[in-house]
Design a protein around this nucleic acid. Structure first.
Lengths: 160, 160
DNA sequence: CAAACTCGGATAACTAATGTCCGAGATAAT
DNA sequence: ATTATCTCGGACATTAGTTATCCGAGTTTG
């Protein structure tokens, strides 16, 4: 029950991408965070498949957000990386063994599954409440100086 | 981000153990659910380490709940199997790379980590709300007949 | 006192996540 | 228009975690 490490990278990338008007290559994002460029590319591909970012190919290509940051929730990012399937999978063991429940009595999920699904929904609901715009705002107030602006300037700068 | 399959088995075992006054061997619980006996034993060991069940050795030994079912939450069981560590681990990538934040500015977790931790707490809070006693009650109302009583009788019965 | 049955930790097989590579495609400059 | 360069995209090794298993230590019962 551990969240993929790539989720952290992906959320950070979405936050910094709000400060870039032009496409940012994956290699540059990797340099900014000092992480494996090839593996980060994999995460960005997932974001692209989910429609959160748009990939631009060619000489001055890279990744751009497709929506305004107010319309991107952390849940969107997490589900893009981890998938939208529930964290709990019920194997219906109540229908097995000598005390097996008859299939016609198992149309609805059992009490245990209902509890797990409810917890899963609560987790997702909490993530849905926070948008990328909220995260940017928090970053602005957490530190002194215009950190977001500085990052944006660094992304636009040419060489390293 | 998938919950260990053993969690399902462990919760089911705790529910049925409420119906057994005497110790129940792991092999019998495995037979009831038609799952691997040796692997289920591993889950029960984890429950034992967490103090949720008490193991009794010897000829008529087995496992017994240590507390009344009202005092065992599903969170207790999940944490016994999966561990109590957070689902999100922050690697502090904000302190790395050319735009690294100074360590003295990173005493508190960043906005992204705070969001993830909050979601984690919401998930755990939902699980903490449901006790094993609640699950037993739900099982009683979900099906016709005294299912819980029948399972208890089967556990006490001698042969297969 | 002995035998049988129990749990407990140490040990393999397998799956999924992690990390890496090179080719297809598009853009920009020539 | 062409060429060269830079981009992403999917296919390929490697590592860690989960799943499954076995045999020895300890205890109760007859």
């Amino acid at each position: 029950m551990k969240l993929s490490g790539g989720v952290e990278w992906a959320v950070h990338c979405c936050v910094v991408l709000t400060q870039a008007a032009e496409p940012v290559p994956a290699a540059r994002l990797a340099e900014l965070h000092q992480v494996s460029a090839t593996y980060l590319a994999k995460q960005l591909q997932l974001l692209s498949r989910a429609g959160l970012v748009r990939s631009v190919q060619g000489k001055s290509g890279g990744y751009v957000l497709t929506r305004p940051p107010e319309q991107i929730t952390t849940l969107d990012i997490v589900e893009a990386i981890e998938g939208s399937q529930s964290t709990y999978v019920c194997t219906e063991i109540r229908q097995r063994g000598p005390m097996a429940a008859p299939p016609e009595a198992c149309t609805a999920p059992c009490a245990i599954a209902r509890t797990m699904y409810a917890a899963d929904r609560a987790w997702r609901a909490a993530l849905r409440e926070v948008t990328v715009a909220d995260l940017c705002r928090s970053v602005g107030t957490d530190y002194d100086g215009d950190v977001m602006g500085q990052v944006g300037a660094w992304l636009s700068a040419a060489g390293s």
